[in-house]
Design a binder for these strands. Structure first.
Lengths: 189, 189
DNA sequence: GCGATTTGCCTAAATGCTTTAGGCAAGTTC
DNA sequence: GAACTTGCCTAAAGCATTTAGGCAAATCGC
């Protein structure tokens, strides 16, 4: 029996592609086996379970997204940085819907702590260096930005803004403008 | 064989409770049958498929949420209305996490059109009557509010804000304040 | 009341995904 | 080249979905 050369990494990458094609929920060990033309049980030497596979895909996606974010933020500040990071999330979600859905997988605390998740909060916080916010407002603002990015992107992905005017690109631009204005003019308690 | 009195409605309600207990993804026709102490196949007279069951739960949740929203908005305007509607979403998600997750189920266009989904957009738009926004800014603002409500609530539900200071209630209050300020001072393009 | 019809829940069975146990042969090591 | 490790295999059990067909309980017409 010829060896195909399965590894956790190859399975994870293939799983991520599968997720983008058919949706993260539809990612299945069985389908992955089919794609490698291998029996299902064979995958279980490389991946502990279906859940383990999904977790690995989530970690991959978080990592990719953090790298893209870091690249986009380099050399930018204030409004430019805000727009750059927002676009990274939105573009990633549109190009890789399955991977983006994977980033929303609930990880157990230990796994989450070891993930690139922390980098995401750090990047958002970095944006705020371009604005004049002290704690605890800075944390509130980090959470607001996270909510808007995630909320907008997932509503858009679910088709919430389609088939109605104005188109969602237009709204996205104006939402980022509004956030910039808000951060420059953050209300006192 | 004694008849238990199954109906689509009872199954849907029980499914919604099950969702709140074990998570929307874990809602299964088999588990529902167990709870009614009935054979699985029996449910298929009342529900077309597992997907159909989930869709019914989603429609129920959208309806409940729309009713709560309408009640909360009655007699309120401006900032009060904004806070009231925001709290409806947040409280519902915290009290009924499974049902809230159900509202995010992707519905086919026909079902979505017949759902209470439209009421939600209308309610958000109603809030904006208390602010001075013309189209297309009004639509942008509707989408922003939807993004923040959904984004915040789902990040909070996923534990994104837990175990870190300040607590998420505090952030929520300040986020609503910030949105109010933003709507009163919406930036020109 | 009582027969006819509808309705509700049943048994049975096929399909598909997950997961574990144990085996054999291809690759690696010395 | 023998001994070991590793990769993919067969086999089988468990559970969820879904369909087909059956019997009995509720309901309706008379």
């Amino acid at each position: 029996m010829a060896r195909v050369g399965l590894t956790s990494e190859r399975l994870t990458r293939a799983g991520a592609e599968l997720a983008d094609e058919v949706g993260f929920d539809q990612v299945t060990v069985a389908e992955l086996a089919r794609r490698f033309d291998v029996k299902v049980a064979s995958l279980y030497s490389h991946v502990k379970s279906s859940q383990d596979l999904k977790t690995r895909i989530a970690l991959l996606a978080l990592e990719e997204l953090a790298d893209l974010g870091a690249a986009a933020l380099a050399g930018r500040a204030g409004r430019d940085a805000l727009i750059a990071l927002g676009d990274v999330y939105r573009d990633y979600a549109r190009e890789h819907p399955g991977r983006y859905a994977a980033t929303r997988l609930r990880l157990d605390p230990a796994t989450a702590a070891a993930s690139a998740g922390g980098k995401h909060a750090q990047m958002t916080r970095a944006i705020l260096r371009g604005y004049d916010l002290a704690e605890p407002d800075q944390t509130h603002a980090v959470r607001l930005l996270g909510s808007v990015f995630h909320g907008f992107v997932s509503l858009e992905l679910d088709g919430g803004f389609s088939h109605s005017e104005p188109d969602s690109q237009e709204t996205w631009t104006r939402v980022l403008d509004a956030l910039d204005a808000l951060l420059r003019n953050w209300p006192a308690p």
